[in-house]
Design a binder for these strands. Structure first.
Lengths: 196, 196
DNA sequence: ATATAAAAACAGACTGGACGGTTTGTTTTT
DNA sequence: AAAAACAAACCGTCCAGTCTGTTTTTATAT
């Protein structure tokens, strides 16, 4: 087998193994030895592909981010062209997906836990979001209202992710539906200020 | 000195020491030995007061929660009586305080990090919030809109806490101001539905 | 009050194990 | 022949929790 392919296979195996362990045993049991065992690789092979545990976590995070970035892109693609704020809506829809997808919870924990030694692991998230925010602002009739809708979706997603959401499942779903509903916000948007 | 007082002093010393360490060295350096050293207690004394590290974390979390609960109570006390949704507003104000207070960030990390082994440490947060949510719903003309305001504040607070907020400081402050501003939401609330 | 036994608070050395990372050697690809 | 990929034993450190004592407080009996 080609080396490049071999490496890629191994790296994928590692990421899948990490996800399996986190889901099955919790993020506390995500050790290099466990990953090696679960992936079928030896520890040597593992550390050949990822020099440190932080590197594994980073790959894991990038994998997750790409997964949801793709979700967002696809959603944007198939959105009603008449939709006035497509970027905002696709971001909110993605956040709903994050909040709903069951396995994500412990992955979030795992990464948060690792943040202790790798504080700027999350900077990639900021980069992505900053971009998204720019676009949301640009397309919005009332940018602040759009940001607030985004923030609310984030709040629902993060509280759910960390299992500290005091709202019922129905409440959350209804709120997400509202956040996605243009009609609901249309007449709530600030009318453009008359020129002074 | 009385035993009860002796214990209380020691426990307080431990919590303060923990906060000092987290703020100065980061949550990764929060070990039992470090806490003992910083607090002036011996390891034996420390483990006499807190049987496990989880117990320390729990006390730390309770301390923080009580701190902000008091902030919220005080805010509620001094609020304009004409304020239509005082509970919501005081909750939002508290969340703004959390987002702004500098030291909180790493404390949040420390506790999240420990969540690995003590998954239901956070249930106390849910309990408090559930209560708050009930009151917010009860006093609101448009409960869903109130929940969304709350969720947005949470989103801003949590993203800031975990340093993944893509918004500028000014943006955040302006958004918090908006969330607190009744005028802004008044005409946005759903008019009470006409009886069928 | 005073002596004394018990309990609580505290001191600090020690242990056991987990875990990240290294090292040395082998197989496979280039 | 060289480099990449992999195997697996090994090491050093860190750290939560324990264990054995010592000091201080409290309860009880005289």
């Amino acid at each position: 087998m080609e080396n490049a392919l071999r490496s890629e296979r191994s790296r994928n195996a590692v990421i899948q193994a990490a996800l399996t362990i986190i889901g099955r045993d919790g993020p506390g049991r995500l050790t290099l030895d466990a990953i090696a065992r679960e992936s079928g690789l030896s520890k040597g092979g593992l550390t050949h592909q990822f020099r440190t545990k932080g590197a594994v976590l980073q790959a894991l995070l990038e994998y997750q981010i790409e997964y949801f970035a793709k979700f967002s892109r696809d959603y944007l693609q198939e959105i009603d062209p008449a939709q006035p704020e497509p970027r905002l809506v696709s971001q909110i829809a993605t956040l709903r997906e994050i909040a709903v997808t069951r396995q994500q919870h412990s992955v979030a924990f795992a990464i948060l836990g690792a943040l202790t030694d790798a504080p700027d692991l999350l900077s990639i998230i900021i980069e992505r979001d900053t971009e998204a925010i720019e676009q949301i602002k640009a397309e919005a009739a009332d940018p602040d209202l759009a940001l607030l809708r985004w923030a609310a979706a984030r709040g629902l997603a993060l509280t759910t992710l960390f299992r500290i959401c005091p709202l019922s499942r129905e409440d959350r779903e209804r709120l997400f539906d509202l956040l996605l509903d243009d009609q609901y916000w249309q007449h709530r948007a600030d009318p453009p200020k008359p020129g002074v």
